[in-house]
Simulated assay, not measured.
Amino acid sequence: MHPIMHTIVVGILSYLVLIIVLRVSGKRTLSKWNAFDFVTTIALGSILATALTSTQVSLAQSATAFIVIALLQFAITFTSVRSRGILKLIKSQPTLLLFKGQYCDDAMQRERVVKAEILAAIREKGMADVEQVYAVVLETDGAFSVIGNAGEHDSALEGVEGLSKR
């Protein structure tokens, strides 16, 4: 088969196989990314690119590779829900960056977050006064959570690194 025709045929079929594998593997595969999800996504993209450009790799090999990556992700996420050690290995802990209007300088430095990023997150939530912010948390996917009002308990902050020091 001519290399360009191979790319067209294998590309279309590989793309369809990838869509099917992603749909079957569930929402977790397409959720907000942590480092583990990022690696999985890059691996799937690399497999697709190889399938499209290499005449040495068959459609069956590409489909098998897609399935292997999806199964590995399923196995690891399945295990991480049941094992705290595996969870810690693949997912970082959310980190407290601002608490009761006060910046957590050590955490900001460790996470390489500057004050301007925290202020931008606060403004994005429609808030104007840092003193009225109860907490800003750097989530495991790199997003900022801004909590404006304190409740009776800090239950939503459970597991956030740095809270116990406050």
Rank of each mutant, 00 (worst) to 15 (best):
L16K: 01
Y134I: 02
S58N: 10
L89N: 00
T64G: 13
Q102K: 13
L16S: 15
G45E: 14
V146Y: 06
V17F: 03
G26D: 04
T140N: 06
G126Q: 10
G148R: 13
L71G: 12
R166D: 03
G142L: 08
F66N: 15
I47C: 06
L52K: 04
A143Q: 08
D141M: 04
V68A: 13
R166Y: 06
A156Y: 09
V160G: 05
K100V: 04
A63F: 01
A150D: 12
I67M: 12
V21T: 14
H2N: 10
E161K: 09
V160H: 00
R28D: 01
K125E: 10
M127I: 15
Y134T: 06
L59A: 05
A121Y: 11
S54V: 02
E161S: 04
K165F: 15
S31D: 07
N34S: 11
A116H: 08
K88F: 03
T7Y: 07
R112C: 12
A120D: 15
E124D: 10
Y103K: 09
V17C: 13
N34V: 04
E152V: 04
R82C: 01
R84V: 15
I122Q: 02
A75I: 13
F99Y: 14
R28N: 03
D129T: 11
Q56C: 03
M127W: 08
E152R: 13
F66D: 13
E111D: 07
S62N: 08
R123G: 02
M108H: 08
G162D: 04
V133R: 07
D141F: 01
G159V: 08
L98S: 09
A120S: 12
F74W: 08
Q102I: 11
E117C: 00
G151V: 05
A135E: 02
V146A: 06
T55I: 07
L59Y: 10
Y134G: 06
T29M: 14
N149G: 12
L48P: 03
F78P: 02
N149K: 14
L16Q: 10
Q56A: 10
Q109G: 04
V133W: 14
S164H: 14
E139T: 09
Q56I: 04
Q61C: 00
S164R: 11
K91C: 10
T53F: 02
H2W: 05
T77M: 09
A116I: 12
E152N: 12
